[in-house]
Amino acid sequence: MFQIVYREEMAEGTVVLNEVMAPGIAAKAKPGQFVMIRANEEGERIPLTMAETNQEKGTITIIYQIVGKSTALFKTLKEGDSYLDIIGPLGRPTRIEKTGRVTCVGGGTGVAVIYPITKGYKEAGNEVTAIIGARTKDLLILEDKMRAASDNLRVCTDDGSYGHHGFVTDVLKEILEGEGTDLVVAIGPVAMMKFTCELTKQYKVKTVVSLNPIMVDGTGMCGCCRVTVGGRTRFACVDGPEFDGHEVDFNELTHRLQAYVNDERVSYKSFLKGSKC
């Protein structure tokens, strides 16, 4: 059992942070790695990239958006409650090197994933600009942490309620046109990563993305998470989750994420019905 020692709701309750006791995983985890997590006996195994780890306390932090039954179920867990299973750390860690100028782009809950990577690049001696975005101001997460983790933070909202009015790609384009950057790391919704990669391709700037396909075991055993990268099938769980964004077939990923959309609806509906009683 993996106990929740701290819990926080963000983005008007649409996003939840859990700091969970998992000393074995905390001791090993590196930025970019994920865990498979399951709340109860009937539950699915969900992959979540860790936002933070604390070796001394033996905890890991996960941040998830409520998108369906499983995450809605996770949200019902309070401080002191436990997850039934957490498995990890899985996947390859981010290859953090001294590159020069690095731009970290995070959208939605992708900000949670890019936060430890941003921190890692700065600690490795890079000049790090971070661009984070959300639909509206109240849905923005981890602004303060991202400011502290980077040399320069740029914030965007789709509706203009805060920071730059528009998409993260607008600000990224400014940077590409202006001072330039040696590396872009982009993590967020598939569409955001896709557009970011289309943009950086024009400027021939290497771009790393972290992919979030559906997984079952997370250890390379089932092939559910297969993605096409550079024309080759790769398993995001063991070959990734980070890949060269210019090589990724985002359309295939978008399709594959829809594989169970009807089942997910059925499951979520029956959960909402049950929890109202």
């Binding site: 009937e42 195994r45 079952v216 089932c222 092939g223 559910c224 997910e264 059925v266």
Partner: peptide
């Protein structure tokens, strides 16, 4: 592996009682 793991380990044959589809 995936088909059988979903059905056997994750009990997808009992969906939606079990969450894995």
């Amino acid at each position: 592996n995936e088909y059988l793991t979903r059905s056997n380990l994750m009990k997808a044959y009992l969906f939606p009682e079990f969450d894995t589809p």
